[in-house]
C-alpha cells in the first residue's frame, strides 16, 4: 500500500467474542467496496469465538496486499472493551486514533481471584506512549436507552464513521446497514448508528 494513497486506512477492531465485532467490520468493508476501493479483511474465528479475544483487521486503499495489519501500522484502533484495547496498543501507529469503549468484561481469571483487571489510568498511560488522539467513549451507556446492548457494535461503527477519509455519506451508510442487517433489528441499529455519529461529533480529537 502506498503512503501517498489518500484513501489508505488500516483499522483494527478488537473486543470480546459475542460483541458483534466481525459484523461491524463486515459492514465497513461493504461500505468501502461501494466506493470502488480495494479491501482486505481478516478476523479471528473458530475457537476464539467462545468468549475469547476477537480481532478484525480491515485494510482499505487503492491496492491492498496483506490482509493483516502490522504493529505500529493501524491508523485506527477501535476497541469494544478496555482490556482488549490494552492488549493491542502496539498495533496503533504513532499519532493514530484510538477509540475505546469504556466497558470492562472481566475474564474468568479475575473471578477466580488469580489476576487483576487493569485500571483505566494504566491503560490510558500505555496509549499515551503512542498517541494523544485517544477517546474513551461510554458506548454501552449511550445505547442503554435503546434497550438492546447488542447494538453496541453499530454504535461503535457510527462513531468510527465520522473519522474515515472515505467520503461515505449518511445515505450510503444507511443503505449498507439495510443490506447487512435483518429487518427486525434494522431500526434499532439505525438509531444506534446515528447515536454513535452524534457522540463522535461532540468529542475533540480530530
Amino acid at each position: 500500500m502506498s503512503d501517498l494513497d489518500q484513501t489508505k486506512q488500516d483499522i483494527l477492531m478488537v473486543g470480546v467474542g459475542g460483541q458483534g465485532i466481525i459484523l461491524a467490520s463486515d459492514i465497513l468493508g461493504e461500505a468501502a467496496l461501494e466506493k470502488g476501493l480495494d479491501i482486505k479483511k481478516t478476523d479471528t474465528l473458530g475457537m476464539a469465538q467462545r468468549g475469547g479475544s476477537v480481532t478484525s483487521h480491515l485494510r482499505i486503499g487503492q491496492k491492498v496486499w496483506s490482509p493483516l495489519t502490522s504493529p505500529a501500522e493501524a491508523d485506527i484502533l477501535l476497541a469494544f472493551e478496555k482490556l482488549e484495547a490494552a492488549r493491542w496498543v502496539n498495533y496503533l501507529k504513532p499519532g493514530g486514533l484510538a477509540i475505546i469503549n469504556n466497558l470492562a468484561i472481566p475474564p474468568l481469571s479475575i473471578s477466580l481471584g488469580s489476576q487483576k483487571y487493569p485500571g483505566d489510568q494504566e491503560i490510558l498511560d500505555s496509549f499515551k506512549q503512542r498517541t494523544s488522539r485517544l477517546c474513551l467513549v461510554d458506548g454501552s451507556g449511550k445505547i442503554a436507552h435503546l434497550g438492546d446492548t447488542r447494538t453496541l457494535n453499530i454504535f461503535m461503527l457510527g462513531f468510527l464513521s465520522t473519522f474515515l477519509p472515505l467520503d461515505i455519506d449518511s445515505a450510503a451508510w444507511e443503505s449498507c446497514l439495510r443490506k447487512q442487517l435483518p429487518s427486525r433489528i434494522l431500526d434499532i441499529n439505525l438509531r444506534a448508528f446515528e447515536k454513535g455519529r452524534e457522540e463522535a461529533l461532540s468529542v475533540n480529537i480530530r
Partner: peptide, 16 residues
C-alpha cells in the same frame, strides 16, 4: 518505533 510498554500482567482471555 519504540514499543509501547504494555500494562503489566494483562490477564489472558482464553475461550470458554
Amino acid at each position: 518505533i519504540a514499543e509501547v510498554t504494555l500494562v503489566k500482567n494483562l490477564p489472558g482471555r482464553p475461550p470458554l
